[in-house]
Amino acid sequence: MGLVLSPEVKMARRIIKKHSLSVPFDLEELVKQYAKITYISIPVEGVDGICLYLKTPNKTPSVIVNVNSTTRRQKFTLAHELGHIVIPWHLGNFVDDIDENPNQLDNQYWELEREANRFASELLMPFDWIYSLYKKNSDCNYLISQICERCGVSDIAASIRLSTAIFEIESILMPKDWVQELFTENSNLAVLQKIIVEKTKLDPVKVASYMTLNLPGSISFCVEDEGTVIRSGSTHDAHSYHQFDGHEFLKDPYPYYSNYYLYTLNNINTHWWVLHTNFVVPFDNRDWRSILEKISIEISPSQGVKSFKDTVNGKLSGVNGNYRKKNSEPNIEEFMKDVIQRFNNPEFKDFITHKDFLPFIRKRSEDFFKSLISISTQQTASP
């Protein structure tokens, strides 16, 4: 499975193919094949264009462009209005502001505007053309300057388009199936990253980020240069501690992990941790409250024993609630692995490395499990 393209992007690509468009092309002549165009001064702030009579029987669509806007903005507006005309579910009339409003992300109008923007972006800055440039020179500054100059768009529009194009390029260079197949052949993440970097010529940061999007299990990475974090991330199933860009790199962020790998290229280090571990819990006949009390006193948490116990119990209750929502069949071993991951970070290092941590987690999980098993039994017995 490759990258899933939105319907409006696919429509833009069909228009490009249908009319055999290549950069640069006459946008106005293209739009005239679909609508009547009028350029006027629109004395209303924030209105870039108007589109009338969309899908109206016996009516030719009409596009009005605000001449008060810059030439580049008018061009994007014209492509945006063509998007409204071409996208089948855009009906009626539109008064358009091509700048997306971050405060109206759930508004239906703004979703239609975003769709028209994506159509316009693809039409004016076609992916195939950007990819052809990328294969010659992958420098982002070069690509943005070329897109601005040859497509006649603003720096902002070029930057936004390039970011989406780069993601698609990465999905082409690193197909999900290929990455997963390599992983089954070699589970050493440093070796896997090295293979992908050498074959794709992509930088280690992009490769590491893409790997975690497509690999199974609980895996975390951190890229650093001379002790400063460049990027960190994890797979979908990992509830891991993240180190922030620009901060000092922490060498041992995870008390619990099964494997560690290091890949170095040009003095830039990528650290990998496989977080799921197999563990053996020693027998203990104490109840979980007694064990937690003993641990809390011995590690002397800075916030005080009571506050620390409240934090631990609150965190465990949250894990329990999430587990109930996701799992109909309780599995205590998987539940414990999930619990351990939630504490697997520097903040709880003294707690998670205490000799009584595993007995406590086992006892507390069993206590939660009594309720889970009871619910599961009731559901099974229901007619």
Rank of each mutant, 00 (worst) to 15 (best):
L5W: 04
S6Q: 15
E8A: 07
M11R: 09
R13E: 15
R14K: 14
L27S: 05
K36W: 05
I37P: 09
Y39H: 10
I40F: 00
V44K: 15
G46I: 13
V47R: 13
G49I: 02
G49K: 01
K55D: 14
K55N: 08
K55R: 14
T56S: 10
I64R: 13
N68V: 09
N68Q: 12
T70N: 04
T71F: 07
T71M: 06
H80Y: 03
E81I: 10
E81M: 12
I85S: 01
V86Y: 10
W89V: 06
G92I: 11
F94P: 06
V95M: 14
D99A: 13
E100F: 04
D106T: 11
Y109L: 11
L112I: 03
L112P: 00
E113F: 02
S121Y: 00
W129K: 13
W129P: 02
I130C: 10
Y131K: 12
Y134G: 01
Y134M: 03
K135G: 08
N137E: 15
D139R: 00
D139G: 01
Q146R: 13
C148H: 04
G152L: 04
V153D: 07
D155M: 03
I160L: 13
E168P: 02
S171D: 15
W178S: 14
E181N: 15
T184P: 08
E185M: 12
S187H: 14
A190Q: 03
K194W: 00
K194F: 03
I195P: 02
I195Y: 14
K199R: 15
T200A: 04
D203L: 03
D203V: 06
V207L: 06
M211G: 01
T212V: 13
T212G: 00
N214H: 15
N214E: 10
L215A: 10
P216F: 09
G217E: 05
S218E: 14
S218K: 14
E224M: 01
D225I: 02
T228D: 04
S234Y: 00
T235N: 01
D237V: 00
S240K: 13
F244Q: 14
G246R: 05
H247S: 13
Y254M: 08
Y257K: 05
N259K: 15
N259Q: 14
Y260Q: 15
Y261I: 01
T264Y: 05
N267E: 10
I268Y: 00
H271K: 05
V274T: 10
H276Q: 07
V280D: 02
N285F: 05
N285A: 09
R286V: 03
D287E: 06
W288T: 08
W288K: 07
W288V: 00
I297W: 04
G304W: 08
G304D: 12
G304Y: 09
D310Q: 07
N313I: 07
G314D: 07
N322L: 11
K326C: 13
N327D: 06
N327C: 11
E329T: 12
K337A: 09
D338N: 14
E347A: 02
K349N: 08
D350L: 03
I352Q: 11
T353P: 05
T353E: 12
D356C: 02
L358E: 15
F360K: 02
R362T: 02
K363E: 13
R364F: 08
S365F: 02
S365M: 01
I373V: 14
I375E: 12
S376P: 00
S382H: 15
